[in-house]
Design a protein around this nucleic acid. Structure first.
Lengths: 324, 324
DNA sequence: CTGAAAGCGCTTACAG
DNA sequence: CTGAAAGCGCTTACAG
């Protein structure tokens, strides 16, 4: 049914070898212009596209890049990042296969089955998987955003930025608004560490941590707890949680930023529309994506690793964290 | 390097045929329990996983399901849907390959290269692609959300629900808040059609359409235009746009819902935290995803198509569209 | 400059 | 109950 290289060969009166040489522009072989033109024309006319399966079997590796996602929900940030990465890879003729780390079947089976060219790991991989990948010669791009160029954990760095901004605005007692989503727990813990570290560094008391789900009731409860502890500023896990906090403060009859300042993370468009507009930490996702794409290409080409993009995180100050 | 079925055969002292029979539990062949146990144990011990490429080449089709996304940004709704679909497929040993319809290379090359088991099309496919897929025996699941069970276009249906809700609250002059994102144009047009149709059906004047980007300035401009036309209610393309409208109304010194009512689409968590809380149209994405997964499995198994899930869309009424 | 042949790893008639 | 052999579509030494 499908047209194969043999069909193209037959139709253009040459061997499959020649077809392969022409279509892959194999370096080191010279094909007469007439033959080349004829093969190309025939291939186009027949709508020939080489079988990925056969190529993979032959080459021992596919044209697939496997993106291993963590078990947590993909927010708009990671979403953008994946899209941009897929675009860059597509330009190189590579398709991106997205795998949610649901643990449904062992990673080992997956990468063995798919024989990806590269694995881009947004989640930390198990030791055994890393060993196995290394042994199979599949290189791994670490996109878990672990280390920051300051040597600090990148997530902790974000938490630190939040606290430093709040403290610069005259706030002295910091609350932390985490999330009850268990899948985000590990991630949130790293943020909270940064928050706690920054408080310690600034001589503030340790942060008062509350986990919210995205309901008004849970936000109100958190606000009461913070209030009881004398909290005058809240660092939120992300903008969604931050907006929940704004609503909770309102519901408790208090005012932002007069009673409590709030800052989120991600700087989603909606943050600017809140009342009051929500301060946030921008993650410069475009530059991050470009860097990640460059890393992936470097791994593919065996080239040198690109220079890290410098600091990607900046505080976007809005009314919700105005200085008092 | 990688362990093959030949390795397993050698290590367990049988032929590759037997290994294949045991591992695939091929129906119609009987293998002695001793042999079966030995092969299974050996395969596990060696960490054997069959090569997807070889299987695909042999079978003429892969264990991949190709999800063809439209060119528009993936919102939280589609995002959820994809994740759930991927989970269901994973349980069946199928991996989902996501392809953004960027038109970077012709679809034809992609499906030919990948030989997917099924294509789940979230965007409408070109005639030529549909023909080619049919010819290659690759079935297509239409997930573009085109037809609604009422016979109405599903997107138009959502627009209708918005207008009917606003009109039921005593609003007489409807504004439409679209998006300047060109990738969403076609989608938004179908919504607007539903809005216009509902207005006509209710004897209201045609909607006053404005396209917004997600900035306060553009929202303010739109609000002024609506105001000049006497608009007292706005149906927004989605909750993000709806929240921008809320901010624009505030910036114009007007009040929601007293001067203008607003309703979005998607019912994202943040909608409930707005001031005032934003009304929305819930898309019951979980049920939609389940239906889509069932359709995909039905196609894979050649079974009958599952019953459509009934009406998935419901208005979530909040303060932003309170009756006047 | 071009072609015949081998082999990637799998499954499945076909023999025994 | 088990094995030897062919073939899926490709690429690449190796001959000519």
């Amino acid at each position: 049914m499908a047209v194969t290289s043999a069909d193209v060969a037959r139709a253009s009166g040459v061997s499959r070898t020649t077809v392969s040489y022409v279509l892959n522009a194999t370096p080191g072989v010279t094909i007469s212009d007439a033959t080349r033109a004829r093969v190309l024309e025939t291939a186009a006319r027949l709508g020939y596209a080489p079988s990925a399966a056969a190529r993979t079997l032959r080459a021992g590796r596919s044209d697939l890049v496997l993106a291993v996602l963590p078990d947590w929900p993909i927010g708009p940030v990671l979403d953008d990042l994946l899209e941009q990465l897929a675009d860059v890879l597509a330009e190189r003729g590579l398709a991106m296969l997205v795998h949610h780390g649901r643990g449904t079947r062992p990673m080992a089976a997956l990468w063995r089955a798919v024989q990806p060219r590269t694995v881009v790991a947004f989640a930390e991989l198990a030791e055994s998987d890393l060993r196995a990948l290394a042994q199979a010669g599949i290189q791994v791009v670490d996109a878990s955003g672990g280390a920051h160029e300051t040597g600090e954990d990148a997530q902790a760095h974000i938490g630190r930025l939040q606290v430093e901004h709040l403290a610069a605005g005259g706030r002295r007692r910091i609350g932390w608004a985490g999330t009850t989503d268990a899948r985000l727990a590990e991630f949130a813990a790293r943020r909270l560490e940064g928050v706690a570290g920054a408080c310690a560094g600034l001589g503030l008391e340790p942060p008062v941590a509350c986990d919210l789900d995205l309901t008004a009731a849970s936000a109100e409860r958190a606000v009461r707890a913070w209030r009881a502890a004398g909290v005058d500023a809240v660092a939120a896990y992300n903008d969604e949680v931050g907006l929940a906090v704004l609503a909770g403060v309102r519901a408790a009859g208090l005012a932002v930023p007069d009673d409590v300042a709030v800052i989120g993370v991600d700087d989603v468009p909606v943050a600017a529309f809140a009342c009051p507009p929500l301060s946030s930490v921008d993650q410069a996702i475009g530059r991050h994506a470009a860097y990640l794409a460059a890393c992936t290409l470097a791994v593919l080409d065996g080239g040198p690793a690109p220079a890290p993009p410098g600091d990607l995180h900046t505080v976007v100050a809005r009314a919700s964290s105005a200085a008092r």
